[in-house]
Each structure stands twice: as C-alpha cells, then as structure tokens.
C-alpha cells in the first residue's frame, strides 16, 4: 500500500516536472504573442493581453503567412506520405523475405541518415537549380522524403516485425500476392504504427529550416520556419509579438493532426490474431 502510494507520488511529481520543462517555452511563446508590449528580454514586459499580433500575422498581406502555412502542410504531408509509402514495402521486404544481408542493409540506411544535412546542401542547391526546381514543392519534398525515409523505415520495420508471421502467410495462402498481402493485411494491422510514423515524419519535415531556407527564394514554396525567420519589423526592430504569434499559429496544424488521428493510434489492434 505505502509502496504503491510512494510510486504514485513519484510518478505525479515526475510527470509534472517533465511537462513543466517541456511546456514552459510554449507558454512563454503564447504569452509573448498575446501581450500588448512584447519584449522577450525585458522583465517589464507587459502582461496586458491582446489579439493584435495574431490578427496582424494573419491579416498583413505582405507577410504571406497563410500561404506559408499551406506550403508547410502540403510539403510536409507529401513528404510524410511518400516516405511511408516507400518505407512500408521496404520494411515488408526486410521483415518477411529471405534476403541475404538485410540487417546490414538496415544499418547502411542508418549510416546514410547520419550525414549532416549541411554537407549536402550546396550540392542539393546546384542540383535543384539545374533542374529548375528552386522554389517549387518538389525541391523540398524530395530531400525531405529522403531525409525522413531512414527513420520511417526503422520504425516500420520494428512495427512489422511485431506482426505475427503467420498472418501474412495466411494471406498468401488465401490467394494474395506479396503486394496484396502488404496492402490488405500488413498495412491495416500496422495502421497505428504507420500513422504514428507518418505523423513523426510530418513533424520532422514541418520543422525543417536549412533546406527550406536555401531551396526557396520566394513565397511559392516557402515554409513556416523560414517565413517566420524572415519576418521584419517596420523600423528594423525584431517583431517579437508577431514572431511568437506566428509560431503559436504554426503549432495548430500539428496539434490538430495528432488529435485527429489519436483515435486511429489505439494500441492492441492485433489482439486476437494469434494465440498468445
């Protein structure tokens, strides 16, 4: 009994500390965005609340913020979808086919993902220029997909390897080819894992800054992180209020996405598939 209570107290305190640590910057961001005289470094920052910064960010045509939001969502969404669509068959092959050296392949993929993006960016810029893709979605979607692919592959491989082998064998005997078994059995059964992988890939792409900065030159494909960084105040001062308001707004799509799919990410979907 006492043991149990001690554990509960530790658990609560730990969770509270962790949440505070993570949420404090977010709270600060929202506070600055909503304060009427924001000055991030000043202790006398006003605490009178206002919606002015939010309205400015959304309403000022020259900022193009709504366009950046659309760009970000499309670029990240496409990258995540593409990465998962490529990673799923790869993970199936790695976990289910008798391929020689499949473990070495996985580690090779991991090694590739360890290249610092900075080392690639100048070459990437020249390539995209040569293709005439600068300032298009393709210029971002392609590198983002490549960038999140190793991560997606690793996560999906681990999800697929937890699905009982007999399940897709049953599908093969029931008349499916390999691809049909993947589509009709593996993907639906691994749906929670696939959704969380896609969301993770989305968030990675959504927050990416370096490629987006160099591969976009105008508002056609510019994403939120770059857009915000390029905000300029009227008289050269840093417009903290608007920056924080934009950052706050940028969180909304991600939060909505997670809330929307939370119902899909229910654990225990394989319950009853095989006897334990």
């Amino acid at each position: 009994m006492r043991e149990e209570r001690r554990i509960r107290i530790f658990y609560t305190v730990g969770a509270a500390a962790m949440s505070a640590f993570c949420l404090l910057p977010v709270a600060y961001m929202v506070l600055v965005a909503a304060s009427s005289r924001p000055d991030v470094l000043s202790a006398e920052a006003s605490v009178r609340l206002t919606a002015r910064h939010f309205l400015e960010v959304l309403g000022t045509g020259s900022l193009h913020f709504p366009e950046y939001v659309v760009n970000s969502i499309l670029v990240s969404g496409l990258s995540a979808a593409l990465a998962v669509a490529l990673a799923a068959p790869a993970a199936y092959a790695i976990t289910r086919l008798e391929l020689p050296g499949r473990m070495s392949f996985l580690f090779l993929v991991l090694a590739v993902s360890m290249f610092p993006p900075v080392s690639l960016v100048s070459y990437l810029f020249r390539m995209m220029s040569a293709l005439g893709w600068i300032n298009t979605y393709a210029a971002l979607v392609l590198p983002y997909t490549a960038w999140v692919l190793p991560l997606s592959l690793w996560i999906l491989t681990s999800h697929f390897s937890r699905i009982p082998r007999d399940l897709d064998r049953a599908a093969l005997l029931d008349g499916c080819g390999r691809l049909a078994a993947l589509r009709k059995v593996m993907v639906p059964v691994a749906a929670p894992g696939i959704l969380s992988t896609a969301i993770l890939a989305f968030i990675f792409a959504f927050n990416e800054f370096l490629f987006a900065l160099l591969l976009t030159t105008g508002r056609n494909a510019r994403t939120i992180p770059v857009g915000i960084a390029l905000f300029e105040g009227l008289h050269g001062e840093i417009p903290w209020g608007m920056i924080m308001a934009a950052a706050t707004l940028a969180v909304v799509p991600v939060v909505l996405l997670v809330l929307l799919f939370q119902r899909g990410i229910v654990a225990g979907l394989t319950r009853g598939a095989v006897r334990e």
Binding site: L167, A170, P188, V189
Partner: peptide, 20 residues
C-alpha cells in the same frame, strides 16, 4: 508454384486470424 496458385488452405498452429 507459388502458394497463391496452389489453392491450398491451411489452419495455422496460431490460427492467424486477421485482427482488423
């Protein structure tokens, strides 16, 4: 000949029902 073309049915040691 692949399993698909053999028209063989199997009851697995583990049942292997589709949980979805």
């Amino acid at each position: 000949v692949s399993p698909r073309e053999r028209n063989v049915a199997m009851v697995f040691q583990s049942y292997a029902l589709y949980p979805h």
